[in-house]
Amino acid sequence: MTWSPVTMRWPTESTRWMDQLSGAKALADRELASTGTRLADLEAVTTTNPGPVGAAAKGPSEAGRQAMAEQLSEPPACLVVTPFQSGIGQGRGHQRFLSAPNLLQALANKLTDATDAARPQGEQHALCILFLATRYDQLAASLARFNALMPVPELVRAERRADHLAKLEAEKWQIPQSGPLPRWQPLPLERCTVVKAAQQSMAGQLAVLESYAADSSPMADLSALASRKAEQQRSRDRQLQDLQQSLQDRQPDTATRARTIGPGSNAELRRALLEHDGPGHEWVICAGVLMVGSQKGLSFVRELVGL
Rank of each mutant, 00 (worst) to 15 (best):
D163S: 15
D163A: 14
H164C: 08
L165C: 01
A166I: 00
K167F: 04
L168A: 09
L168I: 11
L168P: 02
E169P: 00
E169G: 11
E171M: 04
K172F: 02
K172S: 07
W173K: 15
Q174H: 05
Q174N: 08
P176E: 15
S178I: 11
G179F: 02
G179L: 04
P180N: 04
P180W: 02
L181R: 05
L181A: 11
L181C: 07
W184N: 15
L187N: 10
L187Y: 12
P188S: 00
P188E: 00
L189P: 01
L189N: 02
E190T: 08
E190I: 05
E190K: 10
C192S: 12
C192L: 14
C192E: 15
T193Q: 15
V194E: 12
K196P: 01
K196E: 08
K196A: 06
A197L: 15
A197N: 15
A198N: 07
A198F: 06
A198H: 05
Q199T: 13
Q199R: 14
Q199K: 12
Q200M: 12
Q200F: 10
Q200V: 06
S201A: 15
S201D: 15
M202N: 08
M202K: 06
M202H: 05
A203M: 08
A203E: 05
A203T: 07
G204A: 05
Q205P: 06
Q205Y: 03
L206P: 00
L206V: 03
L209W: 01
L209F: 03
L209H: 02
S211N: 13
Y212L: 11
Y212D: 12
A213I: 09
A214V: 02
A214Y: 03
S216I: 14
S216D: 14
S216M: 12
S216Q: 15
P218I: 04
P218Y: 03
P218V: 08
A220W: 03
D221L: 14
D221H: 13
L222I: 14
L222S: 10
A224H: 14
A224K: 13
A224D: 13
L225G: 10
A226L: 11
A226C: 08
S227N: 13
S227V: 08
S227H: 13
R228V: 00
K229W: 09
Q232I: 11
Q232M: 13
Q232E: 09
Q233P: 01
Q233K: 12
R234D: 12
R234I: 03
S235L: 11
S235C: 03
R236F: 06
D237A: 09
R238P: 01
R238C: 03
R238V: 04
Q239L: 15
Q239N: 14
Q241E: 06
Q241F: 02
Q241A: 05
D242K: 07
D242Q: 15
Q245P: 01
